[in-house]
Amino acid sequence: MTVPLLEVEDLRLTYRSRGRSLRARPVEVLHEVSLTVAEGETLGLVGESGSGKTTIGRAVLGLARPSAGSITWDGQDITHAGRRERRALARDIQVVFQDPYSSLNPALTIGDTLAEPLTVQGVGAREARRKVGALLDRVGLPADASQRLPREFSGGQRQRVAIARALAPEPRLIVCDEPVSALDLSTQARVLDLFIDIQRRTGVAYLFISHDLAVVRHISHRVAVLHRGEVVETGPAPAVTSAPRHPYTRRLVLASPVADPVEQEKRRAARGRLTVSVETSPTPDSTGATAVQKTDFHRGTR
Rank of each mutant, 00 (worst) to 15 (best):
T2S: 14
V8Q: 13
D10I: 00
L11Q: 10
S21M: 12
L22Y: 02
R23M: 15
E28S: 09
E28V: 09
V29F: 14
L30D: 02
E32K: 15
S34Y: 07
T36V: 15
E41H: 11
S51C: 07
G57W: 07
V60R: 12
P66D: 15
P66F: 12
D77P: 00
T79E: 12
T79V: 05
G82Y: 07
E85P: 01
R87T: 02
A90N: 15
D92L: 03
V95H: 04
V96F: 03
F97Q: 05
P106N: 10
A107Y: 08
L108V: 11
A115M: 09
A115C: 07
A115L: 07
L118D: 10
L118R: 08
G124P: 09
R129D: 11
V132L: 04
L135V: 05
R138K: 10
A145C: 08
Q147N: 14
A164Y: 02
R172H: 11
I174P: 01
I174C: 05
C176G: 03
D177T: 00
D184H: 01
D184G: 03
S186F: 06
A189W: 03
A205R: 08
V215W: 12
R222I: 12
H227P: 00
E233Q: 05
E233N: 07
P236A: 01
A237L: 08
A237Y: 06
V240P: 10
S242V: 06
A243H: 13
R245C: 06
H246F: 07
R251Q: 15
V253Y: 05
S256V: 14
V258M: 06
K266F: 10
R267A: 07
R267Y: 06
R268C: 07
A270G: 06
R271C: 12
E279P: 00
E279M: 04
V292P: 02
T295A: 14
D296W: 14
D296R: 11
H298K: 14
T301V: 10
